[in-house]
Write a protein that binds this DNA or RNA. Structure first.
Length: 577
RNA sequence: GAUUCCGUAGCUCAGCUGGUAGAGCAUAUCCCUUUUAAGGAUAGGGUCCUGGGUUCGAAUCCCAGCGGGAUCACCA
């Protein structure tokens, strides 16, 4: 009984076109054709290979999704989409079916193949009267049946797209559909892949080693951020999803590697917007015997190399801006930057003086903020957004950089830089702090900040301190936000566009069986006792408003759970079983 | 978290101060042997996001909720 209802329900929820395709699927099977064959299909060419190396009459075997079907009597055109692009195919009835049996054309191609189906095609190349390269079909095979119709955007001769699949919610939740019908979306992810390859190539050619470090960490270190918490059952202990991999990579430098890097999926339990996703990808690299000056040069050359690898040029458009990744980049100290944009010199100022300046200059502050955070707020508010072209901001206050080596010329500062592009931080690098005593003190200061209410201050990682005590060579480290870099290189203003599956609220799926509303259940409960009763009596018994009653009853009859019969004198409601 | 806009057919979208739910594409049937988003004819297709309220009557007005976008806040 229940499975039957369930089956009915799932059919009710299918659209006409989905039902149609299921029926077609059955027909295909009835004709003895397997709609999901197991055997490999011997593809010989991609659509783009055919375009690039066209030869009249060449035999090819191609496969892909059927994306266009234009039937005109005994001959038809269709379009096949594979991973590289599209190719037109030509079906001629009497060439495909030379004998009396016209099944393959009249039935299989014309009626049983739907848009979106995977089809394999064997044929020869020719050019149509309008000169389009086309495969003349000799034989074809259904490789996989599609049961859901795809959205079908079309671009006209003027380049205008009709029926574009643009709804962001649908696009992100069903990225597979987005990728099938929006080629420009696929291009973004191909470029993303090129970023990774360019980085790897750049690092590997210099002898640096790609490594992997823990994602589940007992202490979430290496950044100031709120972590996700999880629990390990066997150890009965709390673990955190990493917010950064910095402390582990430095342990490897302690261990004797001289250059290590990792593409790190990091997780931060913070807000989401068009530049923040709860999980994101950072690349961190640590190189022994270097300092942050060396790292600046390294970074600008890396980015120049990457921009060329991705776009073939160092110039990239981003919204209204044009960004040039050509090295070298401008270098400005944080102190100078604040002077440039506000005239205020933070040098030698006390916490109180900074706070006073902030409140009288419209920079929001609160009492959990120490000197470092105050300066960071000034910079964030007044300067950060102004740097469009790649610019290194150097020499950050010590308090906000607890893992960074003190500046060689000024004990209040650190040897740190961030790379700003289009007003956003893209990279962050240090001469790494390798003095274990200093590092312990810095952690303790963080502890004080956290007692003051800063819920992002860092935890003390005793094992990391132990590692430093064994000795770490002077080292420079760099972190780059890959998602943001990809945004810049692909001209996407939203991080969701450069992640295959951006985080979204879980989708609601109907539970099993008919999904009854509260009112429907109420009516059904009464009706189940009586099996059959007068409509007016039932209505009074459930005491619902007119509208609620009406909707409830209509729902029940629609689900096939109740039936209303009209007699001469009254209306009778029956429970149907 | 705040503000604001949006949710109508498989897709893209109309639908006015409340009065029988629409178009194009897609789908189905028929005609058509070289088409370029869209050949011709006919037909089917709806939980107007959900629930409640106002009303003789709600896709439309009001309230609440759900989902999404944008802006802001938060965010090394």
């Amino acid at each position: 009984m229940l499975p039957l209802i369930f089956e009915c329900m799932s059919l009710i929820e299918l659209s006409d076109q989905e039902i149609q395709r299921r029926e077609t699927l059955n027909e295909i099977r009835n004709f003895g054709i397997e709609p999901y064959p197991a055997a490999l299909y011997p593809v010989s060419h991609l659509s783009t290979d055919i375009e690039a190396n066209y030869e009249e009459g060449k035999k090819v075997i191609v496969a892909g999704r059927l994306m266009r079907k234009k039937i005109q009597g005994k001959a038809s055109f269709a379009e096949l989409q594979d991973s590289a692009g599209r190719i037109q195919v030509y079906f001629n009835r009497d060439e495909i079916c030379p004998g009396e049996d016209k099944f393959n054309y009249n039935e299989l191609f014309k009626k049983l193949l739907d848009l979106g189906d995977f089809v394999g095609i064997e044929g020869t190349l020719f050019k149509t009267q309008v000169g389009e390269i086309t495969v003349r079909v000799v034989d074809f095979k259904l490789l996989s049946k599609s049961l859901k119709p795809l959205p079908m955007p079309k671009t006209d001769a003027d380049g205008v797209t009709h029926d574009a699949f643009t709804n962001p919610e649908l696009r992100y939740r069903q990225r597979y559909v987005d990728l099938v019908v929006n080629p420009h979306v696929k291009d973004v992810f191909l470029k993303r892949n090129k970023v990774f390859n360019a980085f790897r190539e750049f690092f590997n050619s210099r002898g640096y080693i790609e490594v992997e470090t823990p994602i589940l960490q007992p202490i979430p270190g290496g950044a100031a951020a709120r972590p996700f918490t999880t629990h390990h059952n066997a150890l009965d202990t709390t673990l955190y999803l990493r917010i950064a991999n910095e402390l582990y990579l430095k342990r490897l430098i302690v261990g004797g590697f001289e250059g290590v890097y990792e593409f790190s999926k990091n997780f931060r339990n913070e807000g989401m917007d068009r530049t923040h996703n709860p999980e994101f990808t950072a690349m961190e690299i640590y190189v022994a015997y270097k300092d942050y000056n060396w790292m600046m040069e390294f970074t600008e050359r890396l980015l120049e190399h990457t921009a060329i690898a991705v776009n073939g040029t160092t110039v990239a458009s981003f919204g209204d801006h044009t960004v040039d990744f050509k090295a070298p980049y401008k270098r400005v100290t944080m102190r100078q930057s604040i002077i440039d944009f506000t005239g205020f010199d933070i040098h030698g100022k006390t916490e109180e003086e900074l706070r006073t300046w902030c409140t009288s200059n419209g920079v929001e502050v609160d009492f959990t903020m120490g000197k470092g955070k105050l300066i960071d707020s000034i910079f964030g508010e007044k300067c950060e957004g102004k740097y469009i072209q790649p610019t290194f901001i150097t020499d950050y206050p010590k308090e906000m950089s607890p893992l960074c080596k003190q500046h060689r010329d000024n004990p209040e500062l650190t040897e740190r830089f961030e790379l700003m592009i289009c007003g956003k931080e893209v990279a962050n690098a240090y001469s790494e702090l390798n003095d274990p005593i200093d590092q312990r003190e810095r952690f303790e200061e963080q502890l004080k900040l956290s007692e003051k209410g800063d819920d992002e201050a860092m935890f003390i990682d005793q094992d990391f301190l132990r590692a430093l005590e064994y000795g770490m060579p002077p080292t420079s480290g760099l972190g780059i936000g890959i998602d943001r870099l990809v945004m810049y290189l692909t001209n996407n203003l939203s991080i969701q566009e450069v992640l295959f599956f951006p985080q979204m609220k879980p989708e609601k799926w109907g539970n099993s069986g008919p999904d009854l509303t509260e009112n429907e259940r109420l009516i059904l409960a009464v009706l189940e006792k009586e099996k059959s009763m007068d409509l007016v009596v039932l209505k009074e018994r459930v005491a619902l408003s007119n509208k609620a009653w009406d909707l409830g009853m209509k729902g029940l009859t629609k689900h096939g759970l109740a039936k209303v019969t009209k007699t001469d004198t009254s209306l009778i409601v029956d429970l149907t079983s």
